[in-house]
Design a protein around this nucleic acid. Structure first.
Lengths: 151, 151
DNA sequence: CGCATTTGTAACTATAATAGTTACGAATAG
DNA sequence: CTATTCGTAACTATTATAGTTACAAATGCG
C-alpha cells in the first residue's frame, strides 16, 4: 500500500481551484479545505505549476488558479506531476547474482511493473478534473461561491 | 511511489520454489537468493502459506514448496497475499467538512482508486509464476539444479 | 528417546519516506 | 511604502518497512 497522499491531495487542490473558477485561491484557503498546513499545499501547487497545470501569483491579491479548463486536465497529468517512481518497488538490496533466479528476476519484474503502470495510466488518462468536480458537487457546479468562505 | 518491496520479494520467493520443483527449499536458501534475512523470507512465506500458495515444514528435512503448479498461481494471488491496502492513499487527516469539495472528495477519490485497482488486478491476473519462471531462465527450466547451490 | 534442524513469531532496532512546521527572502498590488 | 502571499530551505515528527535477535514448537533421524 502506498503511504503517500500526494496524488489525493493534488486532485483535491485542483478541484478546489476548479470550483473557484477564475478567482485565485490562496494556499491558506486550500489548506483549510484539505485540512493541512499551507506549506504542504504550496509544495503541491509548485509541482503542479511546474507541470503547467496551475499558475500562481504572489502578493496581496495573489493565489493560484488553473492554467486550463478543468475538462482539459486529466488525472494522468496530475499523477505524473506529483508522483515519483512506479507503483511497485524492486528489492532494496540487489538479489544474488550467483543464483539463476536472482540474476534475472529484476528484469522480469520490471516488465511486469511496466505493464501494470501503463494500465494505470490508461485509466487515469480518461478522468478529468471536470468530472471530479461534477461528482463532488453535482448540483452546485453552477452558482459557485468563494472557497475562502469554507473556513 | 510505493516504498514496499513485498510484492517483488514474494514473486522472487515463489519463483525460487518453482525452480526447485518438488524439492523443499529452506528459508535460508531463499534468503541467499533474495539477498536478505531469512526471517524476512519466512514472513513472506507465512503470508503466502495463509493464502494457500505454499506449504512449509519444520525440522531437519523441512523447507517450503509450492502448494500448486506454477501455472496455477497468478501474480494477482501473490499480490493479494502480501499487499495490504490499495495503490493510492487518501488524506492523512480527513478534509474539512465545511467545504463542499472537502465534504465529497474522499468518496470521489475512492471511486477513482477502485477503478485503478481493478485495472491493476486484471493485468496481474494474466501473469503466472510459470511465465515468470520461463522468462527468468528460458533455457534452464528443464534440468534444474538445487537452489542451495546458489550460495 | 534424544538430538539437530527448521519453521513461526514476537520484540526490538534501523532506515527511509512522508508530512508537518518554522522562518524568511522575493514578488506583487494597492 | 506597506501588507500580503508565494517559493523554498531547513528542520522535526510520524509512520512504514526492512532487518535483527531470540526462542518455543514441530519434525525427522540415528
Amino acid at each position: 500500500m502506498s503511504t503517500n497522499t500526494r496524488f489525493a491531495v493534488a486532485v483535491h487542490v485542483l478541484t478546489v481551484l476548479a470550483w473557484s473558477g477564475d478567482e485565485p485561491v490562496k494556499s491558506d484557503g486550500v489548506a483549510t479545505s484539505v485540512n493541512t498546513n499551507p506549506v504542504v499545499i504550496r509544495r503541491t501547487l509548485c509541482a503542479l505549476a511546474r507541470a503547467g497545470l496551475v499558475t500562481s501569483q504572489t502578493g496581496a491579491a495573489g493565489g493560484s488558479r488553473l492554467a486550463r479548463q478543468p475538462k482539459k486536465i486529466t488525472l494522468l497529468e496530475v499523477y505524473r506531476a506529483v508522483e515519483g517512481g512506479g507503483i511497485f518497488s524492486l528489492h532494496r538490496q540487489p538479489p544474488s547474482m550467483s543464483c539463476p533466479v536472482g540474476m534475472h528476476i529484476e528484469t522480469v519484474l520490471e516488465d511486469v511493473f511496466e505493464e501494470v503502470h501503463s494500465s494505470v495510466e490508461r485509466v487515469l488518462a480518461k478522468i478529468t478534473i471536470e468530472q471530479v468536480l461534477q461528482k463532488v458537487g453535482p448540483c452546485l457546479t453552477s452558482g459557485r461561491k468563494k472557497v475562502q468562505s469554507a473556513r
